[in-house]
């Protein structure tokens, strides 16, 4: 009985993690105007793994929300931002 309960709890936890919305906060240099923000929205908007992108010009970061069960590597995030014309300072992954 104890084993069964442990298995149920474990599988529930794994399932919840798999569907947790993953967010990335990316600190970016060079964000000074709405055209910069629009550029990043367009670039990340084409990615299937990205659900939403929120550009904060005041705090100079980009929050990327991923679709459930989807992933994006830090290197890909960095490449997309650099190819759009901006510099990445730091990437923080946030689990919610």
């Amino acid at each position: 009985m104890k084993k069964i309960l442990t298995l149920v709890v474990l599988s529930f936890t794994l399932t919840m993690n798999a569907f947790a919305a993953q967010k990335l906060d990316v600190e970016v240099n060079g964000l000074v105007c709405d055209f910069c923000a629009q550029a990043l929205e367009k670039v990340f908007g084409k990615k299937e793994s990205v659900k939403e992108i929120d550009v904060n010009l005041t705090e100079r970061y980009v929050r990327i929300t991923l679709n459930e069960g989807k992933e994006i590597a830090d290197e890909e995030v960095k490449k997309l931002i650099i190819d759009a014309g901006y510099d990445v300072v730091k990437i923080n992954r946030v689990e919610e």
Partner: peptide, 12 residues
Amino acid sequence: RLVKRWNNPMSQ
């Protein structure tokens, strides 16, 4: 042609 861009924390 964009020859050079300087991206700074608060400016470009």
